[in-house]
Design a protein around this nucleic acid. Structure first.
Lengths: 119, 119
DNA sequence: CAGTATCCGACCGGATACTG
DNA sequence: CAGTATCCGGTCGGATACTG
């Protein structure tokens, strides 16, 4: 057995922080854009309800994966960006991505098809 | 930005296959034990309902992460083990585990505490 | 032993309307 | 613009009892 070194507790913690329908795509965009306003995120992500997006962002902030920065102006401007902890997820997410593309390619392309259709 | 190489679709697929309250611990044990009977799994995992455990195993089998082998005897014996696809998850899971222990150590130890108490 | 059948409560994602 | 309030339906984890 080659990969015995992981214990499930850390796994639980990590998966828990990643669970949420839109969190992967949020992370994906924050990795690319560095910093995004709430509405930017909202427009880029097809049809998520504002409430839900806010909930996810709040959770991720509570988990210290992202940082919320609010300019006290009117109208308000709020920026979200990855924390160090969030950035550190990069390699792990890449590994998952790699696995999916190598070992679950069918499901991945199927998902992409569905997104094209529904989007 | 260092880790732009992942796309969220593969992530979605992977996280989807890993989502389920007991899947991490199931994987953990199958990585270590190679092959386990249903009841072994059931006893090792503290208080999961049989129905739920079966559901998770079925899903993981449908996702081709594990292989179910049934000896047609009486009483029946059923063995579960990782498929190639499942084994290939090793590095990705290790990466997540590593991240959790390095960047979310507090949450991990807290979880371990809780497990001690409730178990 | 392994699996199925019911039933249930909690939680989660979502739609809509409203506020500072 | 960003966020809150309410309400709703589906799904998920779970408890219990039964079957081959």
């Amino acid at each position: 057995m080659q990969y015995q070194q992981f214990k499930h507790c850390g796994l639980n913690v990590a998966l828990n922080m990643l669970s949420g329908k839109w969190k992967p795509i949020i992370l994906y965009h924050l990795f690319h854009q560095q910093e995004m306003r709430f509405t930017e995120l909202w427009r880029i992500i097809p049809k998520v309800a504002k409430k839900v997006l806010l909930e996810h962002l709040k959770q991720m902030e509570a988990h210290e994966l992202i940082i919320r920065e609010e300019k006290h102006t009117f109208p308000p401007e709020v920026y979200y960006r990855l924390s160090e902890r969030g950035k550190a997820l990069g390699p792990a997410l890449s590994a998952l991505e790699l696995w999916a593309n190598e070992y679950a390619a069918d499901e991945v392309t199927e998902l992409k098809q569905r997104k094209k259709v529904t989007a």
